[in-house]
Amino acid sequence: MKIDKGLLGGSTVLLVLSLLKEGDRYGYEIIKELELRSDKTFQFKEGTLYPVLHRLENKGYVKSYKAKGDTGKERLYYQITGNGKNQLAEEKKKWELFSVSVNKVIGGETHAFI
């Protein structure tokens, strides 16, 4: 099932920062990991992800640096910052409130579906 871009847009920062909290990654690696972990529900294009990464960098939530990858090719890696970790905590709170509230409306439940 294809996910509405409006739904995805509201959770992109949460998803990207969550992956970067686990470790530094380059853009294509983020795209592939999101696709893998979501069973192909989240299929970002480079033209979608890189503007998000640039916005996060401009806000001080991530920083980028060049380094050689496993293949020896130089890549631009992204690393979460202290401010990014704080923002991730805020994004998680917002997501929890949102998902619990939606589930109350659509299913009458007080907790998010698991």
Rank of each mutant, 00 (worst) to 15 (best):
Tyr26Arg: 04
Lys92Trp: 04
Tyr26Cys: 03
Gly47Ala: 04
Ala112Ser: 09
Gln87Phe: 05
Lys40Glu: 07
Leu88Lys: 03
Val62Tyr: 02
Gly23Arg: 10
Lys40His: 08
Leu17Tyr: 11
Val100Asp: 10
Glu96Tyr: 09
Arg55Cys: 08
Gly6Glu: 11
Lys66Glu: 05
Glu22Leu: 14
Ala89Asn: 01
Thr41Glu: 09
Lys45Ala: 01
Phe42Val: 08
Glu33Gly: 08
Thr81Ile: 03
Arg37Thr: 03
Tyr78Ala: 02
Val105His: 12
Ile114Pro: 14
Gln87Asp: 06
Glu109Ile: 15
Gln43Thr: 12
Tyr78Pro: 00
Ile3Asn: 08
Phe98Gly: 14
Arg55Ser: 07
Asn103Gly: 08
Thr48Tyr: 07
Asp39Ile: 08
Lys32Ser: 15
Ser11Thr: 14
Arg75Met: 02
Leu34Glu: 01
Phe44Cys: 03
Ser101Arg: 06
Glu90Asn: 07
Asn58Ala: 06
Lys45His: 04
Lys21Arg: 15
Tyr26Leu: 01
Leu88Phe: 02
Leu36Phe: 13
Lys2Tyr: 12
Lys59Val: 06
Tyr77Asn: 00
Tyr65Val: 03
Tyr61Cys: 02
Phe44Tyr: 03
Glu29Ser: 15
Asn103Gln: 08
Gly6Ile: 13
Ile114Ala: 15
Gln87Cys: 03
Thr12Glu: 15
Ile106Leu: 12
Gly69Thr: 00
Arg55Thr: 08
Tyr26Ala: 03
Leu19Ile: 13
His111Ile: 11
Asp4Thr: 12
Leu97Met: 06
Asp24Phe: 14
Leu7Lys: 13
Glu91Thr: 01
Leu8Gln: 11
Asn86Gln: 02
Ser38Arg: 06
Val62Ala: 05
Val100Leu: 11
Gly27Asn: 11
Arg37Val: 08
Gly23Trp: 15
Asp39Pro: 01
Lys104His: 09
Phe113Met: 13
Leu20Asn: 02
Gly47Thr: 05
Ser99Leu: 10
Glu90Cys: 02
Leu17Trp: 10
Asp70Phe: 02
Phe44Gln: 01
Leu7Asn: 13
Leu17Ala: 13
Pro51Lys: 00
Ala89Leu: 05
Asn58Tyr: 03
Ile30Ala: 08
Leu7Cys: 14
Gly10His: 07
Lys66Trp: 00
Glu33Asp: 11
Leu34Met: 07
Ser101Gln: 03
Leu19Asn: 14
Lys85Asp: 09
Ser64Leu: 00
Leu20Met: 07
Asn103Met: 09
Trp95Gly: 05
Glu22Trp: 12
Lys104Pro: 04
Leu7Ala: 13
Lys68Asp: 05
Thr71Leu: 03
Lys2Gly: 14
Ala112Thr: 08
Glu96Gly: 08
Glu29Tyr: 13
Lys104Ile: 06
Leu56Ala: 04
Ser99Ala: 11
Arg75Ala: 03
Lys85Trp: 07
Leu20Ile: 06
Gly23Cys: 10
Lys94Leu: 07
Lys5His: 14
Tyr65Leu: 02
Gly107Val: 08
Phe42Trp: 06
Lys92Ser: 00
Leu17Lys: 11
Asp4Arg: 12
Lys92His: 01
